[in-house]
Computed example of a mutant assay.
Amino acid sequence: MSGLTDRWGRVHDYLRISVTDRCNLRCLYCMPEEGVAFTESSNLLSFDDIVQVVEAGAKLGISKLRITGGEPLVRANLDQLIVRLAGIPGIEDIALTTNGVLLAGQAAALRAAGVTRVNISLDTLDPVRFKFIARRGDLKRVMEGIEEAARVGFSPIKLNCVLLKGINEDEITDFLRLAYEQPLHVRFIEYMPIGHADDNWKNHYLPLTSVLDAAAVAGYSVQRKHNVKGNGPSDDWEMEGGIGSFGLIHPVSDHFCKSCNRLRLTADGSINPCLYWVDELNVKPALGDAAALEAVFAKAMAVKPENHEMAAKLADEALTHVPTERRMSQIGG
């Protein structure tokens, strides 16, 4: 059995690595419009540090990595880190999550370095609405990034769409059509209260039953799809006659904690056992000592909770633990 088995019997083989908490967008569900206090560059984990942590994790059973941020492509020379991570014994798969704004210029180098798959955040297909949700940036550049990712051979290409009631729910059918007509996997994601659980979250939260309802109204015949490559908790579907597919990620309405296989490494050097709770374990004191790093991973297994309680938060019920105050961009979603 893997050395990374928690108290509930869940085996962990997947590490999400945030390489920066900085981002070139300010998406309304991820970061305040004014931004947050970013980590000083001197306090970020260096590439050498990240490699040390992954080497320790790989000895314990970590085999799958995902590079995240913030926006990972604002970290200089990211392809150099990827080359090093891909060469660690035991690492079999390296994926990347990006907002796509800088992807067109880096896709080829990332592919050559060892990134196998990309997830691209895309919450709207409307340029004006893009400016409203992201608060900056250009939808055209994201679409160019998607095209270049396909050209250099990334497969599958997944589009992450956070559904926001009253903002982009009217585009569900447009995204379904995109997945029907192109070899893309569109993933609809519920809005999570990471770092905030205010009225803005509750007012814009939308359960994903609306997606299957929209597919039926649009006349798509759907059936479950079981062979979408990836490490995540997506509930996947395909449309009869369609080229692509779509998935539902519903952490609030139907949490998937029983099958959780992931840990997160923040850009400033903490292992986060659960995205929602406050618990974090600083790896910096253990750097330079492989056994000490392995001990940090072991402690993460010891403190990881059985589940998060986002649904309880939505219902204004009491929680058994303390939610994090860090925003999604500061943790690495």
Rank of each mutant, 00 (worst) to 15 (best):
D236K: 11
P251H: 13
H255M: 04
K258F: 07
P251E: 12
D254T: 14
G247M: 07
D254M: 12
W237P: 13
L263P: 07
L248P: 02
D236P: 06
E238P: 00
C257R: 05
D235I: 06
D235C: 10
G244Q: 02
G242E: 01
P233R: 08
E240L: 14
P251Y: 04
D235N: 10
F246P: 04
C257E: 07
C260R: 03
L248Y: 01
F256Q: 02
E240G: 01
N261R: 10
P251S: 15
F256Y: 14
H255Q: 09
N261S: 08
E240D: 14
D254G: 10
M239D: 10
G247Q: 07
H250E: 15
G244K: 00
C257T: 08
E238S: 15
C260A: 07
S245Q: 00
D236W: 08
S259R: 13
S245T: 06
R262N: 08
R262T: 13
D235F: 03
C260G: 03
L248S: 01
G247F: 06
H250N: 13
R262G: 05
L248I: 03
N261H: 04
F256E: 01
S234R: 12
S234K: 12
S234F: 10
C260K: 04
G244Y: 02
D254W: 03
W237R: 11
L263E: 07
L263C: 13
V252W: 02
S259Q: 13
H250P: 08
S245A: 14
S234N: 10
V252N: 02
F256P: 02
D236S: 15
D236V: 15
P233V: 12
N261I: 12
I243M: 11
K258A: 09
D235S: 11
E240F: 12
H255Y: 11
F256L: 05
H255C: 06
F256I: 05
D254P: 02
G242H: 04
S259I: 08
D236G: 15
G247P: 10
E238I: 11
E240I: 03
F246L: 10
I249G: 00
P233N: 08
N261M: 10
C257A: 09
P251L: 14
S253D: 07
N261C: 15
L248C: 05
P233A: 06
G241P: 00
S259G: 10
M239T: 06
L263W: 15
S253R: 10
F256D: 01
S245D: 03
R262Q: 11
G247S: 15
F256S: 06
S245N: 06
P233Q: 09
C260Q: 03
S259M: 13
P233I: 07
K258M: 14
G247D: 03
G247N: 09
G247L: 09
H250M: 15
L248V: 05
I249F: 02
G241T: 01
S245M: 00
R262E: 08
C260M: 13
I243H: 03
L263V: 15
L248F: 04
K258C: 04
V252Q: 01
G247K: 05
H255L: 05
M239F: 15
D254K: 09
F256A: 02
E240W: 02
W237H: 12
C257Q: 08
I249S: 01
H250Y: 06
I249P: 00
C260P: 04
G244H: 01
D254L: 07
I243K: 09
M239K: 08
